[in-house]
Amino acid sequence: MLVSALVSGIVLGSIYALIGAGLNLIFGVVKVINFAQGALLMFGVYLVYWTVTLTGFDPYLSLPIVVIVMAALGYLIQSAIINPVLKKERTSQLLITFGLGMFIENMVLATMGPDVRRVRTVFRGNSIAIGDVRVAYESIALIVVTAACIGLLFLYLNRTKIGTAIRAVAQQPDSAELAGINVKRIYGVAFGIGMAMTGVAAVLMAPLYDVHPTMGESFGIMAFVVVVLGGLGNVQGAAVAGLLLGVLQNLFAMFVSFQLSLAFVFFVFILILLFRPQGLFGRAARVA
Rank of each mutant, 00 (worst) to 15 (best):
V116A: 09
N106C: 08
D115P: 03
Y49I: 01
G22M: 10
N83R: 11
H212G: 06
I221W: 14
G220E: 11
I82T: 12
V183K: 09
F123G: 07
G56E: 01
V45C: 13
L61I: 00
A190M: 04
A176L: 12
F103G: 10
L262M: 10
L6I: 12
G199V: 03
F266N: 15
G180P: 06
V3A: 15
A21L: 05
G101Y: 01
K88P: 03
F269N: 13
F269C: 07
L244S: 10
Q259A: 15
V225A: 15
E177G: 14
L2I: 08
P173Q: 05
Y16Q: 02
L248V: 09
P114M: 01
F154V: 04
M102H: 06
A201Y: 04
I65R: 00
S92L: 14
V69S: 14
L280K: 00
V135K: 02
A141R: 00
N234G: 13
I162T: 12
A5I: 07
V144H: 04
I143G: 12
I130S: 08
L63I: 04
Q93F: 00
Y137K: 01
V189K: 01
L142Q: 00
D210W: 05
L274D: 12
A170V: 01
A239T: 09
D174M: 01
A176S: 04
T91C: 02
A238P: 14
G113Q: 03
A176P: 01
R118W: 09
Y156C: 05
L95D: 05
L2P: 07
G22E: 03
V183Y: 02
A71G: 14
A72C: 14
A147D: 02
I143R: 04
Q236I: 14
G74I: 02
A285G: 12
V203Y: 12
T111S: 10
K161N: 09
I162N: 07
S4K: 06
N158Y: 10
D58L: 01
L229G: 15
L109S: 14
T53R: 14
V227W: 12
I19A: 12
F281Y: 10
A21R: 05
Y16T: 03
L23S: 12
P114C: 00
P114N: 10
I128G: 06
Q172D: 15
S261Q: 14
P64M: 07
P207C: 11
A17P: 04
V52Q: 07
R90H: 03
L251H: 03
A21V: 08
E138W: 00
T121I: 00
M222Q: 15
G246W: 04
Q259K: 07
M197I: 08
M215G: 15
